[in-house]
Design a protein around this nucleic acid. Structure first.
Lengths: 217, 217
DNA sequence: GTCTATATGGCGATAGAC
DNA sequence: GTCTATCGCCATATAGAC
């Protein structure tokens, strides 16, 4: 079984559906990829973690790359879906941006491993000659458009100061969020909500003009 | 020759000292490490780039790891030396911090490859069991102390707002700078000075109280 | 769905000729 | 200082038994 199993046929074996078993394997692999890097993680490592032999992994997946592919797609699908909900809310640009920042930090917890892999192994995955991971750039571009539109709208309405470069501002916001995955640990001193509030306070007090009324945080 | 050559004996062969030849090889390797990742870069890749065979590399270096070791040490030595000059200047904490930010962006150009490797391969290098790269954490700790001291001093003197968490603020500043290596390209729309000014403006207008007089930028 | 056994190949590193 | 030649190892992936 190398393709994702249809959810229509969720027959159970030993009390666990094939899809659940597969998801579990993906999760184990993601943690290893995040800790040691994609390349340094061997299929034997993954199999060891799951308590099976490496050959058995190929019953579930085509290749090691198809596992990391699933890790990344799952994250990106979830993130863009969350962004779309916010963009459709009809709120003003400053509030939308604050919500997008909050959403970013909120994904830190469920997608910590995926985000780590995306950051550390981005250059490598993109350098592969078979172009399998080109969709990463497409997703990145779509996300950039979402942010940029709101930033520019915010500058037009006067909610955001207009003397900063929109693209540079986008990068600052984006990078500030995702890079936190390097040191953020669930259960630490700060939860992702407090983290988001802190960042919004620092970032927006620099970005917002006096005309803003909806103080984030 | 597996140890760094003494600078006292700079005998030239074909118009190039052994030390210069070695440095050149390190530079080539660093670029490859940055582009594809440390593990994905083979000693054959490095040798190809240099126009020699892989075996010949071992005349200059013990191992592949000793090459990346040299890349990282060179960067860290330069960075900490620059920081120390600023700290010894006797300026106030806000100005010192602004200068440290500027220095960070300034190192982006000469040390782009090293910074990229440091970020992408940090987890991997630290996960190695022979503990060869433990000094990375020591250097990180020393640098953190330098920043934290200035942030806390700035809060004590009233130059910086006191209602933000010092450690979180340090991480924000640090991460904002180094993560820029992901997209910064020399010769692009913005040079590192303009970049630093932009970041200082955004970050400090959120951090600084009204009592500050030395507007950075 | 997992195991046994193995193919196929690339990796880092070495020894010694030149 | 580079090349030739190669060693030993471990990687991903496969085929077929159970």
């Amino acid at each position: 079984m190398n393709q994702r199993k249809s959810t229509a046929t969720a027959r159970r074996t030993h009390g666990v559906t094939a899809s659940e078993r597969r998801d579990h394997l993906v999760k184990l692999a993601a943690e290893l990829f995040a800790r040691k890097g994609f390349q340094a993680t061997t299929v034997r490592n993954i199999a060891d973690e799951a308590g099976i032999l490496s050959g058995s992994l190929y019953h579930h997946f085509d290749s090691k790359e198809s596992i990391v592919d699933e890790v990344l797609r799952t994250f990106l699908d979830d993130l863009t879906a969350r962004y779309r909900v916010i963009l459709d809310s009809g709120k003003g640009p400053a509030e939308v941006l604050a919500q997008m920042v909050r959403t970013g930090f909120a994904t830190l917890e469920p997608h910590r491993a995926a985000i780590t892999v995306m950051q550390n192994d981005w250059n490598y995955l993109r350098s592969l000659e078979h172009h399998r991971f080109d969709y990463l750039v497409k997703a990145e571009d779509e996300i950039e458009r979402m942010w940029m539109e709101q930033i520019k709208k915010g500058q037009a309405t006067g909610e955001l100061r207009a003397d900063v470069d929109p693209k540079l501002t986008y990068r600052m916001l984006r990078d500030s969020i995702w890079v936190a995955v390097r040191w953020f640990r669930p259960g630490g001193r700060l939860n992702t909500t407090a983290l988001a509030d802190h960042y919004i306070t620092v970032l927006f007090d620099g970005l917002a003009t006096g005309e803003r009324t909806d103080q984030p945080g």
